[in-house]
Amino acid sequence: MSMNRRSVVKAIATGGALIGASVLMPRIAMAAWTTKAFEAEDQATAMNELLGGTPEESAEVTLKAPDIAENGAVVPVTVRSSLADIESMSIFVKDNPTPLVAEFMIPAGTKADVSTRLRMGKTSQVTAVVKAGGKLYSASKEVKVTIGGCGG
């Protein structure tokens, strides 16, 4: 009996999660864009949703970002890696309202060296996560922001 009750509770919970997911993802065409990861409000959740795990620090991932960003609205960042079999590279800003900034797909033939510009609300740790051969590697750097780039 108690087993039965357990499975009923489980079924309800799963059903609820499914409904939640379908509300969050109204467009099926957007499947590649993981809404949950982009809307997650803390870094660990965002990483888990996007990459399904926690990365380990690696010297083979290079994150180039300024020590001090005068303008948080435009922070130039470069992610490089010497790892083999790279699938994707993602950037997270820990103290942003939604930490996941972007995910770059690196198909074979494309160099693992991507530059972009991102927004930072305040001084925060910036983390680059590289997915290579099914494993996750990261590099972090603290960037000080004098003028925030969110809100206003």
Binding site: A32, W33, T34, F38, A73, V74, V75, T78, V93, N96, T98, L100, V101, A102, E103, F104, M105, I106, P107, G109, T110, K111, D113, V114, S115, T116, R117, L118, R119, M120, G149, C150
Partner: peptide, 25 residues
């Protein structure tokens, strides 16, 4: 006909998004 770069972006990408990358070929 081959994908050389793809990005999924959040709102924390700066206004006028900029990307630089290199591909073989």
């Amino acid at each position: 006909g081959k994908e050389v770069f793809a990005a999924n972006m959040g709102t924390a990408i700066s206004k006028n998004p900029y990307f630089a990358f290199t591909f073989a070929g």
